[in-house]
Design a protein around this nucleic acid. Sequence first.
DNA 1: TATATACCCGACTAAAATAGTCAAGTTTTA
DNA 2: TAAAACTTGACTATTTTAGTCGGGTATATA
Lengths: 140, 140
Amino acid sequence: MKLNTKSRYAVMALADMAVFSRNNAVSLRDISLRQGISLLYLEQIFLKLKKNNIVKSVRGINGGYMLVKTPKELKILDILLALDQKVKTIGCKKDSKKSCNGKSTKCITHNFWDELDIHINSFFESKKLSDLLRNKEVRY
Amino acid sequence: MKLNTKSRYAVMALADMAVFSRNNAVSLRDISLRQGISLLYLEQIFLKLKKNNIVKSVRGINGGYMLVKTPKELKILDILLALDQKVKTIGCKKDSKKSCNGKSTKCITHNFWDELDIHINSFFESKKLSDLLRNKEVRY
DNA sequence: TATATACCCGACTAAAATAGTCAAGTTTTA
DNA sequence: TAAAACTTGACTATTTTAGTCGGGTATATA
């Protein structure tokens, strides 16, 4: 059960911004260098973050991106949703009448997976970007 | 963030066994028919379950598989581990000194992902196969 | 106003993972 | 001894992932 790198890099890059922004835009180039993420890949990621109103952009020289919300307000869940990373651990469709394995009734395990999804979702819902920053162990 | 079908089918098949076994072996053919899972695929899955001592097999006519533990004792986590489905949501290596994105220090987000893994793991650790069965909504 | 910096965006692709199938067995019991 | 059922490794089509590529556009500053 894995999270894809896009989601991971997105959280990483936003955490970087939270640390290094002093009310000025942070360029992808800087994030790329500091975090070791491909610039081209970051561009792709930030396109989505911008469309979903997680960041706003400043074009031109000295441009970059800025967080729309403060790190305290920004939920990790919002970041993941911006990258289409839904927490839906299995394929059963919740709403459909013809759902699990093509059967008309819910499969034996259906409700269990729903529970799992809720469990994970609530974790991402409760965590804010700021929660990542107070770690003493980490050096930048 | 998805669970693979192998893990899902494994849990499903074992739940089926828990429901339909009356101290006799349950054949994969029956599970296949009831749960709508390919017989050939089930064979592959049960090979792993057997290797990991989740089920034991009875060969020959009227053969099949039996649960090694009772549904009350069998943790969902054990099932997932049997299928190599580790709950390790990202690629950072926990122990290595040269870990995240090839850097010598832990990445900003490292501890957060560790927390996530623990959160999910403890869910699978706490749930037993029997927990799936008491659901009144489900018909068989 | 030239130019360098940095965002913008769709299309493409190699590699890996997934979700199976296939073939050729072996074992056991009725 | 025939049929049911487990055993096992190898194979494969499809999908997903993890990016790259190419060609833009906007803007600050020299």
